[in-house]
Simulated scan of single mutants.
Amino acid sequence: MSFDNLDTLYRQVIMDHYKTPRNKGALEDSSMTVDMNNPTCGDRIRIQLKIEDGVVKDAKFDGEGCSISLASASMMTQAIKGQKLDDALRMSQIFSDMMLGKELDAGGLDLGDIEALQGVSKFPARIKCATLAWKAMEKGVQEN
C-alpha cells in the first residue's frame, strides 16, 4: 500500500472515531473520574474507568475538542477495555513514544485503531490534542 493510500486510510479511521465515537458518555459506577483540559486549544476531556481486580472493566469519555483529541479518546477507551492496568499504562507509554516519532513497538499488545494516529507526530502542535485522554487515564490510574 502506498504512503498516500495509507495516509488516506488513517485519516478515514480518525474521522470515523470522531464522527462515531466509541464509549462516549458517562459511566455511572466508575472507579475513577479524571477531568483534564488543554488550555492551549480548549480541548477538554473527562475519562471514567470501572476497575475491578486490577482490570479495566469499562471505560467511557466525554468532552469537547478537535477531531484528533476526541478520536484519540475513542480509540483509547476501546483499546484499554479488558486490559490489566499495567498493560493500559504500557499502551499509554507506547502511544507517547509514537507521538515522539519513535518506531512503533506494541510489545505484543493489540493497539487497534491507535496506529492511525501515528501521523500526528509530524505536527507538534497537535500532539497535546492526541495525548490528552491518555494523560488523563494515566493520572487517574496513578492516583487510585
Rank of each mutant, 00 (worst) to 15 (best):
M91A: 05
K19P: 01
H17S: 02
C41D: 02
I94F: 08
G42M: 04
D43M: 01
E143H: 07
C129L: 02
K122W: 04
I45D: 00
P39W: 00
A59D: 15
G112R: 04
T131C: 07
S72K: 09
R44F: 08
K19W: 01
T20Q: 14
G82H: 01
V34K: 08
I127K: 13
E64W: 00
C41Y: 00
S74K: 03
T131E: 11
G140F: 05
S96V: 10
L117N: 07
C66D: 02
I14P: 04
F95Y: 13
G101V: 06
L9W: 14
L85N: 15
A125P: 02
L100V: 03
G42K: 03
R44H: 11
K139F: 09
T77H: 03
L85Q: 14
N38R: 02
S72G: 06
A73L: 06
I94W: 06
D53E: 15
D62A: 06
A59F: 10
I47W: 08
M36P: 03
E115V: 15
D4G: 05
M98E: 07
K102N: 13
R90G: 04
R90I: 01
R22M: 13
M98H: 10
L70I: 15
K135F: 06
A71P: 02
Q12P: 05
G119D: 05
D35V: 09
L49H: 14
A133P: 01
F95R: 05
N144V: 13
Q48Y: 04
D86P: 01
D16G: 10
K128W: 02
L111R: 07
W134Q: 03
R11P: 03
K50M: 10
H17D: 06
L89E: 12
L117Q: 08
S69V: 01
E143T: 10
C129K: 04
T40V: 13
V120C: 04
Q78Y: 11
S69K: 00
D43S: 02
D35G: 11
L100T: 10
Q83I: 02
V141Y: 07
N37V: 00
G54L: 06
E115D: 11
K135P: 00
D105Q: 13
L9R: 12
E103Q: 07
Q78A: 13
Q118P: 01
R44A: 10
A71Y: 05
A79K: 07
E64G: 04
D87N: 14
I94R: 07
G25C: 07
D35H: 15
K57L: 09
M91R: 03
T33E: 15
F3W: 09
W134Y: 03
D53G: 07
Y18H: 09
L49S: 13
A136G: 12
L85I: 14
T40Y: 04
F123L: 09
C66N: 05
D58N: 14
D97Q: 13
K60T: 12
K24I: 05
P124V: 02
M36V: 05
S72R: 09
Q118G: 11
L9T: 14
N38Y: 01
M91K: 05
D35S: 15
M36L: 12
M99G: 04
I114C: 11
A130C: 14
V141K: 06
T20N: 15
I47S: 09
D4N: 11
S31A: 13
G63P: 00
M15K: 01
N37L: 00
P39K: 00
T40H: 02
K122M: 10
L27Q: 00
